[in-house]
């Protein structure tokens, strides 16, 4: 008997007390809340991101290019990685060199290790937990490009922000490789003292575009 058969047989023996007609499917419960009504969505997101010591700026839709340029200049970034599908207009006012990455034409890891940052969009953001989710879409790219550089500038549109975690889970496609980001990398492994910045980007900056109306 293979280990597969052996384990399944052991499981079935262990569950002899479970009635044979007990339903195998289970309707997801609705006893918990979609969100917790802690305040206006964008303000909550901003507050949570600050809490994680991420940088956040509220930006009017017609000011994205100017704010991207300003952020990269503050950072002193000359070369940044971008996913190939990132909107061109975001960089209309900046003079940085863009290193385009795609699944078909990937930038080697050593190249990513040498850039000054990465600029992406996002798929969904969760206000209550200060979370930004990337799903590998055209403006988000391969997972590695938001991991190796030390600075991540993320453009989040107001219409991408939901209040609570359940709402975000419903919008996400599990077949895509997802990265949930809540602030810069951090550790509490030394005396439970939180320190920002270990292996992932040590600085996360978020441009929050639009008013959410």
């Amino acid at each position: 008997m293979s280990s597969r058969e052996q384990i399944l047989a052991r499981v079935r023996r262990a569950l002899a007390d479970v009635p044979a007609d007990e339903p195998r499917t289970r309707a997801p419960g609705d006893g918990f809340a979609d969100s917790h009504g802690v305040g206006p969505t964008l303000e909550v997101l901003e507050d949570r991101l600050h809490d994680y010591r991420a940088l956040v700026r509220r930006v009017a839709p017609d000011r994205v290019a100017a704010e991207v340029a300003a952020a990269l200049e503050r950072r002193g970034a000359a070369r940044v990685a971008v996913p190939a599908g990132v909107p061109q207009e975001w960089f209309a006012e900046s003079s940085v060199e863009l290193l385009r990455d795609s699944r078909e034409e990937p930038v080697p890891v050593s190249g990513l290790d040498g850039v000054d940052g990465v600029v992406t969009g996002c798929s969904v953001a969760v206000a209550e937990t200060g979370t930004i989710v990337l799903d590998g879409g055209p403006d988000q790219g391969r997972r590695v490009i938001t991991l190796v550089p030390d600075y991540h500038l993320c453009v989040v549109r107001a219409d991408q922000v939901v209040d609570g975690v359940p709402q975000a889970v419903r919008l996400l496609d599990p077949s895509l490789p997802l990265t949930w980001i809540s602030g810069p990398s951090a550790t509490s492994d030394i005396e439970l003292d939180r320190v920002e910045g270990v292996h992932g980007p040590r600085t996360l900056e978020v441009l929050l575009v639009g008013s959410g109306d």
């Binding site: 795609s102 969760v126 997972r143 590695v144 077949s175 980001i181």
Partner: peptide
């Protein structure tokens, strides 16, 4: 676990994604 609203990073993956990971 860490007493945070959300941990800094969560990764989810389903099988393999061509060209990514």
């Amino acid at each position: 676990s860490t007493g945070e609203r959300m941990n800094p990073y969560t990764s989810t993956w389903t099988g393999v994604t061509p060209g990514d990971g």
